[in-house]
Design a protein around this nucleic acid. Sequence first.
DNA 1: TGTACCGTTTTGGTATACCAAGAAGAATAC
DNA 2: GTATTCTTCTTGGTATACCAAAACGGTACA
Lengths: 230, 230
Amino acid sequence: MTSSQTSQIYERLRAAILSLDLLPGERLTERGLEIDFAASRTPVRAALMRLDAEGLVVRGPRGFAVAPIDATEIGELAELREAVETAAVRSAAVRASDSEVAALSELLEAARHTADEAGVVQAGGRFHVELAALSGNSMMTDSVRGAMTRLARTRWLEGRTPESREQAWREHREIVDAVATHDADLAATLVAAHIRGTNDRLQQFLAGQQLALRSRGLTIVRNLPPLGSP
Amino acid sequence: MTSSQTSQIYERLRAAILSLDLLPGERLTERGLEIDFAASRTPVRAALMRLDAEGLVVRGPRGFAVAPIDATEIGELAELREAVETAAVRSAAVRASDSEVAALSELLEAARHTADEAGVVQAGGRFHVELAALSGNSMMTDSVRGAMTRLARTRWLEGRTPESREQAWREHREIVDAVATHDADLAATLVAAHIRGTNDRLQQFLAGQQLALRSRGLTIVRNLPPLGSP
DNA sequence: TGTACCGTTTTGGTATACCAAGAAGAATAC
DNA sequence: GTATTCTTCTTGGTATACCAAAACGGTACA
C-alpha cells in the first residue's frame, strides 16, 4: 500500500468486489466512483485499469462493471490451476528447504484457528500461493495468485461448513507433508485431487444455489453477460 | 485497434518494445513519450499501465522502463509453458474437432513460407496460442498468450537459422498430427520436448552471446535489474 | 581540492475542464 | 395511442495546469 490515492481506491474497490459488497455485474462509472471515494477521476481510472488487468472488472462499450461470476470460467481456472499447481508442487517437493516447508506448515497451523469467515477464505487462497512460491518459479506463482484472486469471490460465496473447512485443511496438511518428504508424485497427486474436489463442490454448489442466489440479488453463474442489459 | 489514442500509443509502444526498437532497460518518461507521440500524458499513462500489466514495462521508483530480458524469467516461463501447454494440448487432442485442427494445420502451412524474419517469430508465437485455444480453455489460452508475449523479444533476438526454423516447424507439424489423431499422451510429450528444446537453445544462445549483445548496446541477461543504475 | 548545502529542474500523482458519442427521455406528428 | 424525432444528459477520452518529492547541479566554504 503506497498510500497514493490510486492504491487506496484500488485496494478498497478490490476488497469491495471480493467481499461481494459490490455485486457481480454492477456497473461502475468513473464519475460515480469519483464521488464515492471523494477523489478525482484520474486515480479512479488508474485503479479501474488495474482491476481490469486482474479480471475483477470488465470493460464494456459503456464503461466498467464488476466482473460477473461465471461457472465456465471457474471450471477453466480449475483446469489451469491443476496444470500449474501440480507442476509447481513437484518443483517444490524437489527443491524446497526444510525451513521453507516449515514456514508454510506454520502458516497452515495458524490458519486452522482463524475465527472470522473472511479470514478462512483468504488463508486458503494464500496457502496455494505460498505453496506455489516454494517452487521458486515466480511466473507460476503469479499464475496461481491470479487464479486465486479470480476465484476468491466464489469461495467466499460458498460459505463452507466447518466440516468442509476441516477437510480442506486436512488436504492441505497432507500436501505439505508430501512436500516435506520430497515425494513429488504424491504431492502432485494430492494437489490435483484437492483442486478437482474443490471445483466439483464449487460447481455443485453453484448449480444448486443458482436460484437462491439470484433471489438474493446476485446475478451469478451467467455465461457471457450482456453488460448492456439492466 | 479502437483507434483511440490510448490504443494507438499502446500498439506502437508494444511494437517498438517487442522489435527491440526500444532497448530493454531503457527509461520511459511520461513526458518524453508525450512528446514522441504528440499526445497528452493521459493516454500515455494508460498505455504504460497496460504494458505494465503485460510485463513489457516495469515500474521503478522513478517511472517506467522497458522490461529487461532476464534469463531466469525466461526459464521460469518455459516451466510454466510446459505445465500449461501440455495440459492444454491434452484437452485439445481429446475435444478438438477435425475442422479446428485443420485450421491450425493451415496456419502452420502458411507460416512455413513466410519470408520476413519478424513474421516467422510472430507466427511461431501465434501457433502456440492457437494450439492452446483448441483446448477450449480461455484461461489457459490467456496464460500461454502472456508467456509468448514475454518471450517474443528473446525469440526475435535469437535470429534463428533456417535449419532451426525448419526444425521448429517440423516439431509443430508433429504436434498437430498427434492432436489430429487424438493421441493426447504423444501430443503432450511432443509439446514438452519442444518447449524444453526451444528453451535449452534459447538459454545457450543467451549465455553464449551475452557479451556480444552487450557490445551492441543491449543490457541483456541480467537478473534483478537495479533500474536506478546507469 | 573536497564537501556540504541550497536552489533548480524533472518526475510522477492529482484535479479538472472540455469534447464527442451515445443513451434516455420528452415532445410532437400522425 | 403509437411511433418517431429531437433535445438533453451522462459517459468515457483527452488535454492540461498544479503539486510535492526527489534528483541534479552549482556554489560557497573549509
